[in-house]
Design a protein around this nucleic acid. Structure first.
Lengths: 116, 116
DNA sequence: TATATATATGAACATATGTTCATATGATTG
DNA sequence: CAATCATATGAACATATGTTCATATATATA
């Protein structure tokens, strides 16, 4: 362990950063949201849901993944409360839970498109 | 393989979603940005840099990670162009490259704090 | 009730990832 | 130039992750 606690160079700045840093729990929650969006398969699913709700089968077609793979990924997204669903007979429709997700994706798409 | 291509339920919606879906390359780039932010250690580093630049040693202190671990993570963040650096003698200062990153983190912090 | 369809889940496997430890590089100072 | 400090990197290891395949559940229909 070479934790830089005494030798640290900019004491004032470090103190400020430490005091502004969110709790470990909050950091973990934010990390979990980003993680949910960090896989291309899940990102395709979420992006496809930006403008409309779709069923699992639709999402398989759009993402070109197996139904099973989509279902597994939807579970992850559900657990992170990124998507919600409603059942209508045999069919389960998924939608984005929250507009924040839409914003995150839009910012990133903007970012990689260099439109700033 | 049980790709749902013929049986797909909502042809119109699927077509629309497919036509709106960004290229695989763009999806991958966006996923990479989210992935860079999906680890608590990297997220601590990036969050600490939200309001000021800090050197590696400072970042070790703030995040309570070893210098080596911080340096490895900074490399990842550098490769994703999330942070930039400047050298000043022995010391290397890191800062966020782009305001988009700040926005992403702010939205997520807002989101998990349920302030909507 | 039996069958079919849409979705969900568990186990297994291969691959990716984050940390540590050892060591290297680059810059300052004696 | 030698020593020291700040940072960077490579290898190794344990853990996490995404897909597939097999199977289960839930709903509709014959």
């Amino acid at each position: 362990m070479d934790l830089c606690l005494e030798k640290c160079v900019h004491e004032k700045a470090v103190e400020k950063a430490v005091s502004c840093l969110p709790d470990a729990e909050i950091i973990q929650q934010v990390a979990d949201i980003f993680k949910a969006l960090s896989d291309p398969s899940r990102l395709k699913i979420v992006t496809a849901l930006r403008h409309q709700e779709l069923c699992v089968c639709d999402l398989s077609a759009v993402s070109r993944l197996s139904d099973s793979a989509v279902s597994h990924q939807l579970r992850t997204l559900r657990h992170q409360k990124i998507v919600s669903n409603r059942r209508c007979g045999k069919i389960v429709y998924y939608r984005l839970s929250d507009d924040h997700v839409r914003q995150l994706i839009d910012i990133c798409l903007h970012h990689v498109s260099r439109c700033d």
